[in-house]
């Protein structure tokens, strides 16, 4: 395309088209910029800040910052890696994430990022929030708010892909939580087990009922390769 331009990520020249974000262009070039609230196919939100990069020396979220010609992007500096590690670390202690019996273990993006960043155990004190109610009222789907990281993927997927608006956030600060579009329970919404919203949850917060451990250890998404490998392989193949 004639409008194609280039910029650099960690010194590597990356081609981009107008309208592409830094994250998209880097990803096409086989460069993985860690992310949690962002998912391909959903509108970027810039909520989790895990994809923060330096654009000409200023911190920006790569998922929603447009690529432009000649900018210099830093992705894997010691400072950025430390900042991202701290964000992931804080997400663990802010909720009640017990990987050892979580059915999302091995398929969880938060857990996979922790492994990628070498977080063996949280370095911040656990908050142990006690008010996170699980909702098992729906016959096929359940919400475990203990594990919600407030990424908003389900909010966007339900609104933009399913056209339903089943989920949204309520309250602010530490009390902020995911709520359903009904008086109280998920069963009173029009959520369905085939909804895209169910597929996009990066953690074990929104799941299909009764199927959690169907995939054996060894065949789960991140059992053998770290998160981001599928993107980095593009670079190797080319």
């Amino acid at each position: 395309m004639s409008d194609t331009f280039t910029f650099t990520v960690d010194g590597v020249e990356v081609a981009a088209e107008p309208g592409q974000t830094i994250l998209e262009a880097a990803q096409n070039a086989g460069i993985y910029i860690p992310r949690l609230c962002h998912r391909d196919g959903l509108e970027p939100a810039g909520a989790c800040r895990v994809c923060t990069v330096m654009v000409d020396g200023r911190p920006q979220t790569a998922c929603n910052f447009p690529a432009s010609e000649g900018v210099v992007v830093d992705n894997e500096t010691d400072q950025l890696l430390e900042l991202r590690r701290d964000i992931i670390d804080m997400l663990f202690v802010e909720g009640n994430h017990w990987c050892m019996f979580c059915e999302k273990s091995g398929d969880c993006e938060l857990q996979a990022l922790a492994y990628r960043f070498g977080i063996a155990a949280p370095s911040f004190p656990f908050q142990f929030p006690a008010d996170r109610q699980a909702d098992l009222s729906h016959p096929d789907i359940w919400i475990d708010r203990d594990r919600c990281i407030l990424c908003g993927r389900c909010v966007r997927a339900s609104r933009d892909l399913d056209g339903k608006h089943v989920f949204d956030f309520v309250d602010r600060g530490p009390a902020k939580r995911i709520a359903v579009n009904a008086e109280a329970r998920l069963r009173d919404t029009d959520a369905d087990v085939t909804d895209e919203a169910l597929e996009v949850c990066p953690v074990g917060a929104l799941m299909k009922k009764g199927t959690g451990f169907d995939v054996p250890v060894g065949r789960r998404t991140y059992d053998w390769e770290p998160i981001g490998s599928e993107i980095e392989k593009r670079q190797t193949q080319e």
Partner: peptide, 14 residues
């Protein structure tokens, strides 16, 4: 108590 039944084989063994 309060956890879904399909977690039982994985939780209780702990």
């Amino acid at each position: 108590q309060g956890r879904p039944y399909w977690e039982l084989p994985v939780v209780v063994q702990r």
